[in-house]
Design a binder for these strands. Structure first.
Lengths: 224, 224
DNA sequence: CGGAGCCTCATTGGATACAAGTTCAAGATC
DNA sequence: GATCTTGAACTTGTATCCAATGAGGCTCCG
């Protein structure tokens, strides 16, 4: 897996820094184009430059930042075209994953997916929460849903390639992607996806997933 | 780009070490499962542990090695199934790239491809060379050919994802993939690919590329 | 007043020193 | 005899230190 670290969370400073910087980028607290200086981050996380440096190297490998040899590191900018390209490749990979999953998933997978779906619907229905919390929760569950399907494809390489792109894609305008109408659409399409997987229909699953992702791309292009 | 460094090649020790280790893995001089110790590599490359460590972190990100927190690093093993999975995803990505390239490539791209093809045929025809040299040359040209088509797809994300897999895939049994009959088949299919691109036929290009890669997977499974 | 060259300074890259954890083996105990 | 314990050496992870280089500002000249 590319970026899931489930080891004891207090041990490697480099990992904590990696996650922290990644979160700051995803949250927009580190804006695209912004310069990153190792010493500043080191002080912010109460660490030395060594683990910060290691984290930055990893982030560069994941495509979050860009290191230029002796000049410095900046958060990578992405043009609308690049974003569109990312979604295109995601559509390709994840639709293939959905098709495979339709032929390979078991009852447990389907149960997990249904559980995620239920939680997502509950989170959406809960109108007492602040909209920000809803968006955050939905975003996390959405990611879990897609991840689960990738797993169910039983092709680790495919899952990893797609997960990489998912992570990068999520740094763009989460709020536009999860406005209320978008959430409704997402819920509907996820239901379809579960139906397709349950009925073991690869072509259907593939098509729904492709439509799901390309639809997201389109709404992103319209609003972003 | 993931792993192309075209800056002045004497400046960053970390990059030189990265390339060196990567080559050793691709050449099989570092075997899958073998343990990597930073101090050893540091001495071998006349460097300190710092750049070696940086290189290892990058290699882990690229999927060449596996770091376990305080235990050590080993060259990643791949089961035949994983290899098959890699080829499956490559087929998916590169066939899509070929399809896009058919609609987007220009005369310059086609010229470059033709040049690579000619060089490859020349290398094959030259029977005075040692077989090892032929294989090495053909392997490099083959990689260049595929890379060129990825470029011509004009989708950097797609190109990067596929290139990543290509690099990983090439560490497996280069010699089986480039036995004489395989080279002949490769040359033939590359010719078809150029024809499809030249006639701007996306469906054809896509199909040929898919057949090309899945064929390679099959012959690899048969011999490896 | 504007531009080119130099110079200082901030920042990155590498080396070394140190701390902490893991593995492996030898020994003791059941 | 097998297993658990304990200890020592090795290896990784982090901190600090030093060198080298790119960037920005300042001055001097046109």
């Amino acid at each position: 897996m590319t970026s899931t670290a489930r080891e004891k969370p207090g041990l490697r400073m480099a990992d904590r820094v990696y996650e922290a910087i990644r979160r700051e980028i995803l949250d927009g607290r580190l804006a695209p184009g912004e310069k990153i200086t190792e010493a500043v981050l080191a002080e912010r996380f109460a660490a030395s430059r060594t683990p910060v440096r290691s984290a930055i190297v990893r982030l560069a490998g994941d495509g979050f930042v860009e290191m230029t040899p002796r000049s410095g590191t900046v958060v990578k900018r992405r043009t609308p075209n690049e974003v569109s390209d990312i979604y295109e490749v995601r559509a390709l990979l994840e639709s293939a994953a959905a098709g495979l999953a339709a032929g390979r998933c078991d009852a447990r997978d389907l149960g997990d997916l249904q559980a995620i779906q239920s939680e997502m619907e509950a989170a959406t229905a809960g109108s007492w929460q602040a909209e920000d919390e809803v968006v955050e929760k939905v975003s996390a569950l959405n990611q879990a849903f897609h991840q689960k399907i990738l797993e169910a494809s039983r092709n680790a390489t495919l899952a990893d390639s797609a997960a990489r792109l998912m992570n990068i894609g999520f740094l763009i305008n989460t709020y536009a992607r999860f406005s209320r109408p978008e959430i409704e659409r997402s819920l509907f399409e996820h239901r379809q996806l579960i139906a397709a997987l349950t009925s073991r229909d690869p072509a259907w699953a593939e098509a729904v997933m492709r439509a799901h992702i390309l639809g997201a791309r389109n709404s992103l292009a319209a609003e972003g």
